[in-house]
Design a protein around this nucleic acid. Structure first.
Lengths: 316, 316
DNA sequence: CCTCGGTCCTTTAAGGATAAAAAATCGATA
DNA sequence: TATCGATTTTTTATCCTTAAAGGACCGAGG
């Protein structure tokens, strides 16, 4: 059987000593707090602990840890029960992105890179222990990732005997897009029947404007398409929410997120075509013309499918 | 916030001392080997180690462990390189089913029971540690289960802050069946276009016969319907395989498996109706009549949806 | 040349431990 | 009455450890 090796050339060796639970949340929060402070000047009063907690999406415990650091290092002064900014925090205090990524995020990233590089042969075995060693994490982290990754349809589990990589193949693209087409057509049809005062129409018009702006500046900003693509399709699915369809879009989002990072061939032109397809699709939706919606949707998905399929034959 | 307690009334306390990795595979293999020996008589030669390994679906290592026991306890004698059965193994040597279930299977079972009992309030929090204590397993086992269970659309993860049970509600049934209907109609339409010599037609005719037999003996065997239901729908999806559709059927299979165990109301009558619907559906497929297939499929799924929905209002 | 026993090594499935993060508690105070 | 500081308790994310299961190798024998 073919065994896999996950180490890439030019890989930087992991030297960081691992703690039990990483403090990536603290470090991210720290950076985010600095972003907030950057918009303030000396003498300004900081938001309250609860406000910061809400705004940053972390517990007050973590917020307080950051605020303690700011006090201890003389950037913030206590004035009664207010906190006052006394000194700007220099940029170099920010934690680098390598330290703000949790283990599970790192595993996902490295696994996807390994897969999309094309190093992975269909049918090859994935070994938890080997992967854990190469990624510098414990086997439990790998297990957890693989279990979550199962639903992407790219790996199979053989109990007591590891995992099989099924391959990032044309079959995969076809099966993915068969479902995607069913779901998208269903959502698009539902959207057409939404009442004219549904909030989706406002969002859709805003998205159309964003598409127009991007097309006007396509040469420098063509990489922003990925985000726009995701937002359009997610908006359409909100017409009639269904948790299984939402979950499926998670699969598509992840696949495309990494796919866009690795497949740079014809990127600019590919995205320009896709944006134009989107505009036609959006116009059809705004016109609430069911037949045209179905047609423009089909055209766009067919070309997206071709894009993904071509990623599997990199030499042609 | 509502907290959950997983301990049921009349629950038997776990007293078994836990080992690192349970030997459930050995115990299952042991029982399965006894089943094979039951079909033999004294003096018969056992199959080879490799044969047993293939047949039982476990490694030779495990097979050899069972064979060692048989030798050590005088039930099997070595004759050159053959093994000869010398004494029947008494039934009481079999391991009880409680010892042949792996931790992950136990966790799944107990979680599903807890959910389907209706003790779980929608929106309540699931606590890994609490659940681990109640189930008598380590937190890693719970985590792994919850991660795998995510795709069933019944729980949500909040990073660093546990899991939320979304509730086994009518919404869930509706969303599940919306997808199921799309997938089933798609597969049924594909099946109609299969060539007359496709192996599916043979299997379908066999299934039809099984339905007929079950209907004739409905009073004593109505519980066998669950298995038949699963096999029919799985057969139809093989018309044009798609890994995402297969995965979705795993969700349906598990939900129905436990649902059938807990919801006994009108069980016999419900199953009888469903079998008749199946027969009409199968006949339409065998006739390769697209319109009738769509119609009978819709009728059957609508009644299955009602069955599941009714399970959420147990007092009406 | 295939199969078996013996042996050994590798890998998975579980348990257990610990630091970080979340959450709760409680006066005090504005 | 909501907020803050201080402190404590609970829970998650991660690492490490170990027995069972899988798998490879080898020599012998039919």
């Amino acid at each position: 059987m073919v065994k896999l090796f996950f180490m890439f050339k030019n890989e930087t060796k992991k030297t960081a000593e691992r703690t039990m639970k990483p403090d990536t949340v603290f470090k991210q929060t720290f950076n985010a707090t600095l972003d907030i402070l950057a918009g303030m000047k000396r003498g300004d009063v900081l938001p309250s602990e609860n406000e910061l907690s809400d705004q940053l999406g972390v517990s007050r415990t973590t917020v307080r840890k950051v605020l303690s650091w700011l006090s201890d290092n003389g950037h913030v002064r206590l004035d009664g029960r207010r906190r006052v900014l006394t000194a700007i925090v220099p940029k170099r205090e920010r934690f680098p992105s390598t330290e703000t990524e949790s283990t599970s995020q790192q595993v996902e990233k490295r696994f996807m890179e390994w897969m999309l590089r094309g190093d992975a042969q269909p049918g090859s075995l994935i070994n938890e222990l080997e992967m854990a060693r190469q990624f510098g994490v414990a086997t439990t982290g790998i297990r957890e990732f693989l279990n979550r990754f199962r639903r992407f349809g790219l790996i199979d589990k053989r109990p007591n005997a590891g995992w099989v990589f099924k391959g990032f193949t044309e079959d995969f693209a076809d099966e993915l897009f068969e479902i995607r087409e069913m779901f998208e057509q269903r959502s698009a049809r539902a959207m057409v029947t939404l009442p004219p005062d549904a909030p989706q129409w406002r969002d859709l018009r805003a998205l159309r404007e964003e598409h127009r702006l991007l097309l006007g500046d396509i040469d420098s900003r063509f990489q922003d398409f990925s985000d726009l693509d995701n937002r359009l399709h997610r908006l359409i699915t909100t017409a009639v929410p269904n948790r299984f369809i939402d979950d499926f879009y998670d699969v598509i989002t992840l696949i495309f997120h990494y796919h866009y990072q690795w497949n740079k061939r014809d990127e600019r032109q590919r995205n320009e075509v896709a944006i134009e397809e989107h505009v036609h699709y959006i116009d059809a939706l705004l016109a609430r013309d069911r037949r045209r919606v179905e047609q423009t949707c089909r055209i766009h998905l067919a070309s997206a499918r071709q894009t993904l399929r071509r990623a599997f034959s990199p030499l042609v």
